[in-house]
């Protein structure tokens, strides 16, 4: 019986956009896409796909589905994951969901995952690199009523259980959970693999299944956001170099430490 892993992925504005190009529409509370800078798949999500692929490398008989919720442009992120080696792609594209918060997102993804059942493992990134919230993964686990292990650096499936190395501040712990389960992965897992050309070409030909909220049996009107973005702005970060003055080294160090404490850095 094939193991079925579902990876949740997202397309995000390039996190390496030069700071000078990063702009925000404060009225609309949205990030203005930088001209000429294409969005990219959220890095932790592709690491999630990498984790799934490693399980397939080890076990062989593993089906990997990729699920995303967002506008049509999110197809690119799905295609990238298919090129990495995932089997099927699903996009939930519904204009009514474009303003979804993480709660609604989790609701929709959970419904999609249930539609794809049976499944054994859900993998998400530890957080999406746009909002950096890190909530959808654990919320999915709660919605699906299954165990959750967060911030994994290694994910294995053994004897019907998932064995995860979970990152701690000064090391890691090995946690075991019965399947099905949700695991969120961190960059400690390693770089996502580079797609082989044949798979890129195959992925280009693969159909991505598109669903609306209704296809999942959801009524968008009943999906209420639980948080509202009241403001979105760019904090003052202009680097103004302060040359630390002082007659002696002691004085300079004292002054430097004072500054660092003021800035709450130490």
């Amino acid at each position: 019986m094939a193991l079925h892993i579902i990876c949740c992925v997202k397309q995000v504005p390039d996190p390496e956009t030069p700071a000078s190009q990063f702009r925000v529409d404060e009225a609309a509370k949205k990030v203005i896409p930088a001209p000429g800078i294409a969005p990219v798949p959220s890095q932790f999500d592709t690491i999630g796909v990498e984790a799934a692929l490693r399980i397939r490398d080890a076990l062989g008989d593993v089906k990997i589905s990729v699920v995303s919720m967002g506008p049509d442009s999110f197809r690119d992120a799905i295609k990238h994951c298919l090129a990495m080696g995932a089997d099927d792609g699903y996009l939930i594209n519904d204009p009514a969901l474009h303003e979804a918060d993480h709660w609604v997102t989790a609701q929709v993804l959970a419904a999609a995952i249930q539609k794809l059942a049976p499944f054994d493992l859900v993998i998400t990134g530890r957080q999406a690199v746009d909002w950096d919230m890190g909530v959808v993964g654990p919320t999915l686990a709660e919605l699906l009523g299954i165990p959750c292990v967060t911030i994994a650096k290694d994910v294995k499936v053994q004897d019907g259980k998932v064995v995860v190395e979970r990152v701690l501040l000064d090391g890691f712990e090995t946690v075991e959970a019965p399947l099905p389960a949700v695991v969120t992965v961190s960059n400690e897992l390693g770089e996502p693999r580079y797609p082989q050309l044949r798979q890129i070409m195959m992925a280009a030909r693969k159909q991505v299944t598109v669903w609306t909220a209704a296809d999942l049996g959801l009524n968008p009107a009943q999906l209420q956001n639980r948080v509202n973005v009241e403001a979105l702005y760019i904090p003052e970060t202009k680097v103004e170099t302060e040359f630390i003055e002082g007659d002696t080294v002691e004085e300079k160090v004292d002054r430097l430490l004072q500054r660092l404490r003021e800035a709450k850095l130490i």
């Binding site: 700071a19 925000v24 509370k29 950096d132 919230m133 009241e230 979105l232 760019i234 904090p235």
Partner: peptide, 15 residues
């Protein structure tokens, strides 16, 4: 809270 890798900050209210 900071978001977008620290490039922006967002202020939230709750329903």
């Amino acid at each position: 809270r900071p978001c977008y890798g620290g490039n922006a900050r967002a202020r939230y209210s709750f329903n």
